[in-house]
């Protein structure tokens, strides 16, 4: 069968097929974009705090130790649902204080335990970060992760 295929036929299949699949892919992502904005992330508004929190998250390259919705560095816990893990779905104020206190207490200096650096965040930045975690925890992720442990 492969012998019957000519080089120019193979080339045309490559061009035509790739273009078709690219168009399908781009249309589906366009629909997904619309779905994300209007459905799966629509439960909570993107406030200034969330925007600041995402900026803080990126500024300190948190993704290169932690994972966020499963993507990142696998060296430290998943944080997509950290707000829920600290009970934020039931008592948001207490979860906020616990996360902020945790951030301030780093590093632990415990021998043999992975160390998180001290990032010296301002009160505003800490609140923004928690706003960001709270917002992320409300994304409809098709029930991922399977356990609250992340």
């Amino acid at each position: 069968m492969f012998d019957a295929l000519t080089k120019s036929a193979a080339r045309n299949i490559f061009y035509g097929g790739s273009l078709a699949f690219l168009l399908i892919f781009v249309s589906l992502t366009a629909h997904s974009h619309y779905y994300v904005v209007n459905t799966s992330t629509a439960k909570a508004p993107i406030t200034d705090g969330v925007v600041l929190g995402k900026h803080v998250w990126e500024k300190h390259s948190c993704i290169n130790c932690h994972t966020l919705l499963g993507e990142g560095a696998y060296y430290a816990p998943e944080l997509g649902n950290v707000f829920v893990r600290y009970g934020g779905d039931k008592d948001p104020a207490a979860a906020r204080e616990t996360i902020k206190a945790w951030m301030k207490a780093q590093p632990t200096h415990i021998e043999g335990r992975r160390q998180m650096p001290q990032f010296n965040l301002s009160e505003k930045e800490l609140d923004g970060l928690v706003d960001f975690f709270a917002w992320v925890s409300k994304i409809d992720t098709q029930n991922w992760p399977p356990k609250v442990s992340g």
């Binding site: 589906l28 629909h31 779905y35 799966s40 919705l69 993507e71």
Partner: peptide, 10 residues
């Protein structure tokens, strides 16, 4: 696109 908030058809 399974678990990042994108539709389930993925």
């Amino acid at each position: 696109y399974y678990w990042i908030g994108t539709p389930s058809y993925w």
